[in-house]
Amino acid sequence: MLEFEATARKVLGSDLKNLLLRTRLEEHTATHRKLYTEYLKERRRLINNNQYSPETFYVAKVSQDLQSFLKSQMTWKKGRYVIEFRLNTRNFAKVSSPVLAFEISEEDIILMQNNSENMPKLIHNDCYSLVGDDNLLTFQWQWLDKELTKM
């Protein structure tokens, strides 16, 4: 089964950069949901009809569309990123949360771009794991351990 991280973020409309990011995240989420739902529906249809073959499903349009989309979403830009937490509760609560920042460099971007090469392996493993195939592909995610600074 594929696993994806969820990100929730409230963005002020007065900040155009953040507004564009929010729009991009909303478009990403909607497109990902659509492609992944199509992928799961087709897989379920093939399984229910005893027609599922990992070799065939991996090269099928729904699998390749999902793979291409995921690869295309591995985009980063050099610069400073700011993280602000806002919490809402039903009851009054006094919460202190810092505003944090981190920097992404050109070297970081190059390292993170390597993750896009994992997408074919990720989809391959998802297709083959349903049939108990022991020949799953190994891959390594590139993670950044950036220092967060208080603003």
Rank of each mutant, 00 (worst) to 15 (best):
M1L: 13
F4S: 04
F4G: 00
E5N: 07
R9N: 11
K10S: 15
S14N: 15
L16M: 09
K17I: 07
K17G: 03
N18P: 04
L20D: 02
R22L: 09
T23R: 14
T23P: 01
R24M: 06
R24T: 07
L25A: 07
E26I: 14
E27I: 12
H28Q: 07
T31Y: 01
T31V: 06
T37C: 10
Y39R: 04
K41W: 11
K41R: 15
E42F: 09
E42W: 00
R43A: 13
R43H: 10
R44P: 00
R44W: 03
R44A: 15
I47P: 03
I47R: 11
I47Y: 05
N48C: 12
N48S: 06
N49P: 00
N50V: 04
Y52D: 01
S53I: 07
F57L: 02
Y58S: 05
K61P: 02
V62P: 01
S63F: 04
Q64K: 11
Q64C: 08
D65I: 05
L66T: 05
L66P: 01
Q67R: 11
L70S: 02
T75K: 00
T75L: 05
K77E: 12
N88M: 03
T89C: 05
N91K: 14
N91R: 15
A93R: 14
A93N: 00
A93W: 07
A93I: 10
S96K: 14
S96G: 02
L100P: 04
E103W: 08
I104L: 15
E107N: 08
I109F: 01
M112E: 06
M112K: 12
M112H: 01
E117I: 00
N118G: 09
P120V: 02
P120Q: 03
P120N: 04
K121H: 08
L122I: 13
H124E: 09
N125H: 06
N125T: 08
C127V: 01
Y128W: 14
D134P: 12
N135H: 11
N135T: 05
L136S: 05
L136T: 03
L137D: 09
Q140I: 09
W141A: 08
W141M: 14
L144I: 15
L144A: 11
L144E: 13
L144C: 08
T149F: 12
